[in-house]
């Protein structure tokens, strides 16, 4: 309901405690029911309730200064969502469950995107054709991570890399393991390592193959 307090020229929005809609009419008198605990927020008013009394209050001038001004208020909010992965990402996630990394090919420019997001950003068309790049790939570029991430059970330093899977036209990123961090290099050949019931490769490790030639991955940097 909107309620205009005695002495006010405008209305405020709040709840009215009434048994049913029929018990409420425009113009009825109501009064504030204060919350048990008050902290300087609109919720200090628990609600309004019907009141059969006369007007008892008139607006009086206020100088705008208060002994204990409210300087902040907390209004916690939580919203629940159901995420829809979409056609392309669902296919990708289903593949991961079978320990396969799947991509999609653009029907126009023939590029293979992995992970697929459903559309080719260059051509602006749907990438509906499935592709299965890898599983092996090439480190195109990498960085050494020296800051331990909260809740991540990996010792620093470690290497995080862009990896172009064989047959993919977009590098994905993953951690490199199975080799000291200072021996990782551009062009290094790697393969995925799946562990436990992980939903994606835990990390990539060296295959032992000779390094790839720079020209084979330069456009994927």
């Amino acid at each position: 309901m909107l309620v205009r307090l005695d002495g006010a020229d405008t209305a405020l929005l709040h709840a009215l405690d009434a048994p049913h809609a029929g018990a409420v009419r425009t113009g009825m008198r109501v009064r504030v029911r204060w919350a048990d605990r008050r902290e300087g927020a609109i919720t200090d008013i628990a609600c309004f309730e019907p009141y059969d009394g006369p007007v008892t209050h008139e607006a009086v001038p206020h100088d705008g200064s208060f002994p204990d001004p409210v300087t902040s208020l907390a209004a916690p909010a939580r919203l629940e969502y159901t995420y829809t992965a979409g056609r392309a990402q669902t296919r990708y996630l289903d593949g991961l469950a079978r320990r396969e990394v799947l991509g999609e090919r653009c029907p126009s420019c023939r590029k293979v995107y992995v992970p697929p997001r459903g559309a080719c950003p260059t051509c602006g068309v749907a990438t509906t054709e499935p592709a299965a790049p890898g599983p092996r790939g090439t480190v195109t570029t990498f960085c050494v991570v020296n800051i331990k991430a909260k809740g991540l059970d990996i010792d620093v330093p470690y290497v995080y890399a862009h990896i172009a899977l064989d047959g993919a036209d977009l590098a994905l990123h993953a951690r490199i393991g199975g080799i000291p961090y200072d021996q990782v290099r551009m062009g290094m050949r790697v393969e995925p390592v799946w562990t436990g019931d992980g939903r994606h490769p835990d990390h990539y490790r060296p295959t032992g193959e000779p390094d790839a030639d720079y020209d084979t991955y330069r456009r994927l940097l």
């Binding site: 829809t84 992965a85 979409g86 056609r87 392309a88 990402q89 669902t90 997001r117 459903g118 559309a119 602006g124 068309v125 749907a126």
Partner: peptide, 16 residues
């Protein structure tokens, strides 16, 4: 509801 489609996938045919 657009069941099973991401927003981009809902949008693609309209854009085309």
């Amino acid at each position: 509801p657009a069941e099973g489609l991401s927003e981009a996938e809902t949008l693609l045919p309209v854009l085309h």
